[in-house]
């Protein structure tokens, strides 16, 4: 690894005005940035430190974390969603991986930070997926659309409070007429006359 993460960390600490919480080492380094400064941090990492690839942008819902085990939630008070930006620094000459870094950003409610689409065009689809699955919005994308689910879908299926048995009424009424159909007891083909 030819990139020194400690100097990058010092620069980012100065940018954010406070030392960032860090965990992991080497390629598994994770820093926690305030959501409001996530875009600025990404821009700085891209322009000054060679993190030229957004490998992934995803979200974590920590509602009810530790409800059964009693483990303390890593979420700050009131926060529920965490955005995770995964960055790679690829060597422009060789294309080899110089460094890898993840940024955590705790989101206030479900109102996310500004879009990173101007820095990394691939963020467009990733943000649409985050919106589709978790309902975390991005402040400068008011008309964001779903990417995986169909437009008629109501709700955000990867939220912890999305009912696991919930059915969407796209295909017929849920209380339609009973159908002749296979059950778990059927092990052989069945023909319907």
């Amino acid at each position: 690894m030819s990139l020194e993460l400690s100097s990058v960390k010092a620069d980012l600490d100065a940018f954010c005005g406070a030392p960032l919480a860090a965990r992991g080492t080497g390629f598994d380094t994770v820093w926690t940035v305030p959501a409001a400064q996530a875009h600025g941090a990404l821009e700085r990492l891209k322009s000054r430190h060679g993190f030229n690839m957004l490998a992934d942008l995803t979200c974590v819902d920590l509602q009810g974390f530790g409800k059964e085990t009693g483990a303390p939630s890593p979420a700050p008070a009131g926060a529920r969603f965490k955005l995770v930006y995964r960055l790679s620094a690829l060597d422009p000459a060789t294309g080899l991986l110089n460094a890898r870094l993840a940024l955590d950003a705790w989101v206030d409610g479900d109102a996310g930070p500004v879009s990173a689409g101007d820095l990394f065009p691939c963020a467009d689809w990733l943000e649409r997926e985050v919106w589709d699955m978790f309902g975390v919005s991005f402040s400068d994308r008011p008309d964001i659309t779903r990417i995986l689910m169909y437009p008629e879908f109501v709700g955000h299926p990867l939220r912890k409070d999305y009912p696991i048995k919930k059915r969407q009424p796209l295909i017929g009424p849920p209380d339609g007429p009973p159908r002749e159909r296979l059950t778990e007891a059927d092990l052989r083909p069945r023909i319907v006359e």
Binding site: I171, G172, R179, R181, P189, R190, I191, V192
Partner: peptide
């Protein structure tokens, strides 16, 4: 189950 959208003649489990 696709029988929610089509009439199915043969089920092969």
């Amino acid at each position: 189950g696709i029988d929610t959208i089509l009439p199915v003649d043969l089920y092969i489990p």
